[in-house]
Design a protein around this nucleic acid. Structure first.
Length: 613
RNA sequence: GGUUCCGUAGCUCAGCUGGAUAGAGCAUCAGAUUUCUAAUCUGACGGUCACAGGUUCGAAUCCUGUCGGGAUCACCA
């Protein structure tokens, strides 16, 4: 157990002796003292007053007096209103730091022998990854890291949506207008090339649609169904129906999908080739983002896999069949609707696949907990999925969780990939690294490094800026992403934290590393050092909390707070120029510990630390 | 309309398991470098914590309602 808990336990015992009551340590509120007041930690006496039958101030006075006389680590106390401010002895701080340093795995949670799956990324193979994917990927990766740190066994997966009508649109456009172009021949990254054809399809389709809108059939349909709204608005809403009923291109795309499902040799060949281009492109982007997957699932392989579960559900009477042959589940008693799980033609829908994939994962890995990192527009879908798995009595069903996050919007509005109105992941990555390079060159701290080293450093800084910018905010919040602001390198940013680390490394390079762990002779410990130790001592709790709440932003804010306190310490206190050897050794040990924790915490966000910058 | 998420400084966000005078960063203005990397530090300016009730010794935090914004409620994925 950590220092804070031990202290709480001691205090609760003291109160029990004083009052004869049985107060639990967990019920006490003990927080770092606000900087305006004297003291290190503050105990709230308001809730305790009634056990004493006295005013909060008087109760605080009694507790404080007792603690000062009976606890070795309490040096002094003062009472302001119902707040009992406690000051600790130097020995407490020495011991605290010492214990952190001695613990090789400081912050790591106990091994929980529980397998957790985290699904994230889940791209479609008809266009490149964009800003929305970046938030998803960074969140998923970071949550995986945090869970692992907290002591879980984590399996990182993605499901690649590599089939369906969307990819057929790209394929058709390439076939019709591509003139055999390839990534090699065009020098274009595969996912971008395929994405271009997706956009091209939409353009040609729109042209076709506009022309059709003046035809007699179209006008008849409008007269019949759309009297009350403008022509423009009506046809805007009618687009999907046009695609399915009248469009020539639509018919061709659907025919292609049908051929794909029948495993038509030519179509499969085209599909394999274009998917290969895209997946190759994705790999490069994942690599740049520093993420990977333990296992990738492909929808082309799993899209039929839920059908046996449908049969099982029918046998167990969880599902029911309608006269047209479609299969449903009624979730009205759980506050949801009736939901289709199998079409009347016997084909799967989205949720059928997800049912199958969940079982498949359980079979593959024995995952006891499943976390899906998916945008909040799918909240209802997952609510339904989880309820279905519960009713099918899956062992993992009670521990399925949808980590939903808000959409990323640009200052100019929503992103629309069909219209090419997106921020591509690759472009953004290149931009932030470029920005880091510019800024680093102005500073001129890297003159004694090789070109390769410099390149690595620019990358680390740029990626830190981007990743921290995205991960510091609560996932639930919808975020408006301003490409210019994301590359800020000053203030509450990734590079600010890296800079604290770099300052420490610079100090450490200039001195012999001491192995001293006995700090008893260091007498003039100051408030900057205390605040660093006290922040460091909160790290294990932050990890557990971040794991429980699946909240990487807690880690990000912790790292920022620690870096901020170090920068402050650095500007006020000399390390190498300390007055005596005890102070110097203590500060070196403390700085080293701060660097370790900064690096560790940032690693949980997928951010790498440079030695210099 | 039902469900759900969000609403805190000009902007981007912390704080939400109830506690002291609501905190950071950006932007603006003023300062700090003969001394360990100034991507730093210090100060000033900036608030009806959307609004109204309720619970409490105490509410940004909990409850109810209202307003505003997003998402969702397909034989799409």
């Amino acid at each position: 157990m950590n220092e804070m808990y031990k202290l709480k336990k001691d205090i609760s015992e003291a109160i029990n002796i004083l009052t004869g009551k049985d107060i639990q340590a967990e019920s006490l509120t003990l927080t770092p003292t606000k900087k305006e007041f004297e003291g290190d930690y503050t105990l709230l006496a308001f809730p305790l007053a009634r056990y004493f039958g006295k005013k909060p101030e008087d109760a605080a006075e009694i507790i404080g007096d007792y603690l000062k006389n009976n606890l070795e680590i309490i040096e002094d106390y003062n009472v302001i209103k119902g707040f009992l401010n406690l000051s600790f002895t130097d020995k407490y701080w020495h011991t605290s730091l010492n214990e952190m340093i001695s613990n090789q795995n400081y912050g790591k949670g106990e091994h929980k022998s529980k397998k957790v799956m985290v699904e994230y990324s889940s791209p479609n193979t008809n266009k490149p990854l964009h800003l929305g994917h970046i938030r998803n990927i960074l969140l998923g990766w970071s949550v995986s890291q945090v869970l692992e740190k907290a002591g879980y066994d984590v399996i990182k997966t993605q499901i690649v949506n590599d089939r369906g009508i969307a990819i057929c649109k790209s394929m058709l456009a390439w076939q019709k207008w591509g003139k055999g172009v390839t990534p090699e021949s065009s020098g274009k990254k595969g996912d971008f090339l395929v994405g271009d054809f997706y956009v091209l399809f939409d353009k040609k389709f729109n042209d076709e649609y506009l022309e059709w809108q003046n035809s007699d059939i179209a006008l008849d349909i409008y007269k019949e169904n759309g009297k009350e709204i403008s022509k423009e608005k009506f046809f805007n809403n009618y687009k999907n129906e046009y695609f399915n009923k009248f469009s020539i291109l639509g018919a061709e795309a659907r025919e292609m999908l049908l051929k794909w499902e029948q495993k038509d040799e030519e179509v499969i060949k085209l599909w394999e080739m274009m998917n290969g281009w895209v997946l190759q492109g994705f790999e490069e982007t994942f690599d740049k983002l520093g993420v990977y997957f333990d296992k990738s699932y492909f929808e082309s392989q799993t899209y039929q896999s839920g059908k046996s579960i449908v049969d099982e559900g029918l046998r167990k009477s969880v599902f029911y069949k309608q006269s047209d042959g479609s299969v449903w589940i009624n979730l009205e008693d759980a506050g949801m609707d009736k939901k289709l799980v199998l079409r009347s033609d016997g084909t799967s829908v989205y949720i059928t696949q997800d049912m199958g994939t969940a079982d498949l994962r359980f079979k593959d890995f024995g995952t006891e907990k499943m976390i899906y990192v998916v945008g909040d527009e799918q909240e209802y879908h997952f609510k339904v999925l989880f309820e279905i798995m519960k009713r099918l009595e899956r062992p993992y069903a009670r521990d399925m969780y949808h980590l939903s996050y808000g959409m990323v919007e640009l200052p100019t509005g929503k992103m629309k990939s069909r219209e090419g109105k997106v921020v591509d992941a690759d472009d953004l990555i290149a931009e932030v690294i470029n920005e880091a390079e510019k800024s680093a060159k102005e500073r001129g701290e890297l003159e004694n490094t090789t070109k390769e080293e410099r390149g690595e450093i620019y990358e680390k800084i740029g990626m830190a800026a981007l990743k921290f910018f995205i991960l510091k905010v609560n996932p639930k919040r919808r975020m408006i992403f301003n490409p210019e602001e994301s590359v800020d390198l000053q203030g509450q940013t990734g590079p600010y934290i890296q800079n604290a680390f770099v300052r420490i490394k610079s100090i450490l390079r200039k001195t012999e590393k001491t192995e001293t762990k006995n700090f008893d002779n260091y007498k003039e410990i100051n408030k900057y050092e205390k605040s660093l130790i006290s922040t460091l001592s909160g790290y294990p709790d932050i990890i557990q909390q971040a794991a429980n709440e699946l909240e990487p932003s807690l880690i990000a804010n912790f790292a920022y707070d620690l870096a901020k306190k170090y920068h402050k310490f650095y500007s006020e206190i000399r390390v190498l120029g300390a007055k005596n050897i005890e102070a110097k050794n203590f500060r070196i040990a403390l700085s080293n510990m701060v660097a370790d924790i900064l690096e560790d915490a940032m690693n949980l966000l997928g951010i790498k630390m440079p030695e210099r910058m």
